[in-house]
Design a protein around this nucleic acid. Structure first.
Lengths: 354, 354
DNA sequence: CTGTTAGCGCGTTCAA
DNA sequence: TTGAACGCGCTAACAG
């Protein structure tokens, strides 16, 4: 059996209350007494039972998740994951509220952040828009002592406590490398479809992709970025026009959303000799993989990101350390053959795990 | 606040003990009383606090993990994950013992299984060898009421309660599809290196790979399987000979272990115009990816598999249902660009999660 | 500064 | 068939 607080109390010759004060770093203990208790803790190899501690504390963590609204399927999936977390909230001692804001809109995001601060929440997670006023709002949260994490898209020069998302430069490089391998010796121009250059994740993916294409040598110039605002209609129009204007196109890298429009345009154009790589496994990209119009999909697991965000916010709220290596989000590669069955989520964990 | 047992007791006009009896399906409650309590449970939307229940119960689950020994790096990684689980065991109320057996050896596996049964453990997880005597041993565990899960490699016609591993036919198909895309129009023979046709996962991968290569049309015949016994030296020798004998070879699919030997043979032969796909992200395959000798690695996350196995064994031991969709293990694809930093594990979860 | 005491939500004797 | 009472490991008043 594990040693308990009682064992330490006995071993150190003090009462439970004193042990508790030492364990939780509360004041009101003489240095000598504290040392005695700490010695006992080390000697017996005591580790506090978090479950029991939470039970006794009954503390809840009100958290706010700020997610862009609109039909972007990845964001809707992300929101679903947050809703799942809401379902678990009573077990995790959290009370999560979701705030929707218009996408790519710094002002609305700032308003939402300030509202959360005013509410006195225990932590905020937000999909960041890369603008100075957003950084300022994050700084205000910081001043108020409210932990803040960016979700999916980061904000460089800000005081966010953590970024819950993938390495987007590496994601862009992965896309470029896959495309280069699939194209082999075929040459011709390559198109890039993005949502907006206002969000950092899109910019970073582009950067990584361009770098690899450049390293691979000429013969495959990257055309000017098409900004589809993550809107399927606009994206579809842009792609259709691009296909028409570039009959020698060999590849398309879709690094944002709006992939429904992309797939529709590809199907309409009947161009199946293209290498197409898109991001995020959603209904349209899944359909694209299954029909063969998309060759590969790079994915970030929204569920992992949400759960990581919650873990980190709680840890920060309690002043506990975060095991950075454990919170890294992977870049998944999906092709038609390793597509997971719809709805199946793998490798989740369980009470007591870290 | 969530309703507690007290709330139900009050609402149903009974005592805590009666509520508890109903909750745990124990006898000694009149049908009417039971109905009243159940009504209250539904009405208030009661969900039992698992953490508190575990605290009160103090039950521990002795589990046995049977893992092949030897230098197979994937198996060593798997064992490390089990050891990590041992570290967490006091939190998860488990007591895990690891039993090492010689690889590809049905007799030794049977002995280990029977020993675990004799020990009266609460559950067994084992990397299966596909043999009837193993199936018989699993049946004995079943008769003894001991939950049994297969790990990594399944055993078809057995009474195992669950398989914690990937869909290996799909894995083979994925490998085939990737190879076909990378090779494009290049033709020539393709080699397959396996560990042993005695384990089901290797056979299944081969089946999937062959199927896709056949679908892709001729021009790329799959040579006879090389059985390297997951031994780097033997594997290296076989590959070296194969390279020499087939100067027109265009690809190698390594579906087992012994990849250290594969990489060494490739480096020695100086053949970098091959498409090489291997399994499991381990030290040798990571090195192969980084040096460019291996193009892609298909991986199963050993950590996920071990945690899933523990979850399932505990659930079975308690007669609780398993959310199958949640326990599915994904086939990860790694190329040089999306290689996770060494040691970094992503997307783990936390107390209270499911 | 330190100790006593009463819970947190649940399971489990032991009586009634 | 039912209930009262205690304890799991820890925290938090409230005394001293």
């Amino acid at each position: 059996m594990r040693p308990t607080v009682h064992d330490i109390a006995a071993n150190a010759g003090v009462s439970l209350a004193t042990v508790d004060r030492v364990l939780n770093g509360r004041p009101g203990v003489r240095a000598v007494t504290r040392a005695r208790v700490e010695a006992a803790i080390r000697k017996l190899g005591f580790v506090r039972d978090v479950a029991a501690a939470n039970l006794a504390k009954g503390r809840v963590y009100p958290l706010t998740f700020i997610v862009p609204h609109g039909e972007n399927p990845f964001m809707r999936g992300l929101e679903r994951e947050v809703l799942d977390a809401v379902d678990r909230s009573s077990f995790e001692r959290t009370r999560i509220s979701i705030v929707n804001v218009p996408p790519f809109n710094a002002g609305a995001l700032v308003t939402a952040i300030d509202a959360a601060i005013a509410d006195g929440v225990a932590g905020v997670a937000a999909v960041a828009v890369d603008a100075p006023e957003v950084a300022a709002a994050i700084a205000r949260a910081n001043t108020a002592g409210i932990p803040f994490v960016t979700l999916v898209s980061d904000l460089a020069a800000s005081q966010r406590d953590h970024f819950c998302g993938v390495d987007n430069v590496a994601a862009g490089r992965t896309a470029g490398s896959l495309m280069a391998r699939v194209l082999g010796t075929r040459t011709g121009p390559v198109a890039v479809l993005a949502g907006s250059m206002l969000v950092r994740d899109h910019r970073e993916r582009l950067e990584g992709f361009r770098a690899v294409m450049a390293e691979a040598g000429g013969g495959r110039p990257v055309l000017d970025v098409l900004e589809g605002q993550d809107d399927p209609k606009l994206a579809g129009t842009l792609i259709a026009k691009c296909l028409k204007g570039n009959p020698d196109l060999v590849g398309i890298y879709s690094l944002g959303a709006g992939n429904g429009g992309l797939v529709a345009a590809l199907a309409a154009a009947g161009r199946d000799n293209l290498c197409v790589i898109a991001h995020e496994l959603t209904a349209p990209t899944r359909a694209g993989l299954e029909s063969g119009l998309i060759d590969a999909v790079l994915n970030q697991d929204a569920g992992h990101e949400v759960r990581s965000a919650i873990r980190i916010l709680r840890a920060k709220a309690d002043g506990l350390p975060v095991v950075e290596a454990q919170e890294r989000i992977r870049i998944d590669i999906f092709i038609r053959e390793n597509l997971p069955p719809e709805g199946g989520e793998a490798g989740l964990s369980q009470p007591g795990e870290a």
